[in-house]
Design a protein around this nucleic acid. Sequence first.
RNA 1: GUGGGCGUAGCUCAGUUGGUUAGAGCGCCAGGUUGUGGCCCUGGAGGCCGGGGGUUCAAAUCCCCUCGUUCACCCCA
Length: 423
Amino acid sequence: MSKKKKIQSITGMSDILPDEIPYWQKIEEATKEVFGRYGFSEIRTPLLEDTALFARGIGEGTQVVQKEMYTFEDRGGDMVTLRPEGTASVVRSYIQNSLYAKDAITKLYYKGPMFRYERPQKGRLRQFHQIGAELMGVDSPLADAELVIMLARWVQCLGLKDVVLQVNSLGTVAERAAYLQDLTKQLEAKRDELCEECQERITKNHLRVFDCKNRSCQALCKGFPKLLDSLGEESKAEFNVFCDTLKEAKVEFSINPLIVRGLDYYEKTAFEFTCDALGSQNAFVGGGRYNNLVEELGGPATPAVGFGIGCERVVLIMQAQKAEQDASFQDGIYLIGLDENSFTLCRRLLQDLRDQGVFAEMDYNVKSMKSQMRRANKLRFKYAGIVGEEECKNNTVLLKNLESGEQEAVNVGDLGMSLVSGG
RNA sequence: GUGGGCGUAGCUCAGUUGGUUAGAGCGCCAGGUUGUGGCCCUGGAGGCCGGGGGUUCAAAUCCCCUCGUUCACCCCA
């Protein structure tokens, strides 16, 4: 090992190693398959955007914008930011490329890394990956429900267990503003009885008071009005349609009036998928409706609904719930050359087999048979192809099935065929 | 930004009240007589005990600082 100082990855930015890749590929396959079935097309946007996009889109006052963005000045003097979420970029692209002109309804999904400067913990990294979808051009609870149903099927497709879906309605911007004003008044009246943290929340995060762990705060909360109860008739009716549609599709959910979204643009429908396998950060999907964002970013007034999936969190669930890994043998052949001549023949054979579509491997140096056999077994190859003096002379390969232990001499020319048909 | 836990071999961890050449299991490599893997046996490589400073005759062990990591708060996917 070198004595030079080791360089390691940046805090909160981790490698996804080969062992973990199968989970990621399953997730990506399920996404392409399920989202495609619901009419969503993939879109890829840059990781780096004008800082103003997020400041305006997510909300100047949010914690994400104020404290968590990777923002810096580029060489030309412009302020740029590594995207902390995907929706703002998609909406920007939607406007910039006039996607609204192709059809009144636009369905897009994306996947990729996001960046937030936070303290890492279980299920939270500084570079993390999200899969998200946006349905633009429709203001209907049917669209909201469609997304949630799609997600439920996606969860099913991945085989995730013990998943809980919680839904809520935040009301329209006007309804929420009126409610918050009322709530603020009531909170102010009881200010002295609230804990220190909640006193701060009065001005910053009113709704968070509801899930304060402090017992006296909890007791007081029972007396405060709930946002869901204060909605107007229309919002309530829409929320009911949303819930009924989920029920029709046999999607189980519970109504949680405390579900709040952290980004400013959300209104009306809000939802979260959670799983206890995740620890403290237990939500792996969060989403909701945002009817003002497109206009806010300079596009035509366009209602929209969307969600974001935290991929690392999904991987955590899959790992926690994984079934026993089967250590079965995989199709393919490991070639073993016992001497220089045989080894050279094996190298040629290796290339032929690979060209025929066979998964084939071998060493780069002639080693003892024991050593080569051990590696064939370690890599879980179903077949070993042994070549020594005898085989060279007869132009054959001793094909050994490592699973059964049986072996037979096969003509070099027939090897590819017997592997393809017999494998 | 705040608080707690943990940094000893590639991995998981032992290491007694400070006391010789710092250990185990797994993994890796090589052998166990002629050309046969897994199981078993033997051997080997691999550690400035995260880094720096201090106390001491003596520090992996005690103290301080620092870095890293992890969990939680805040907040979020």
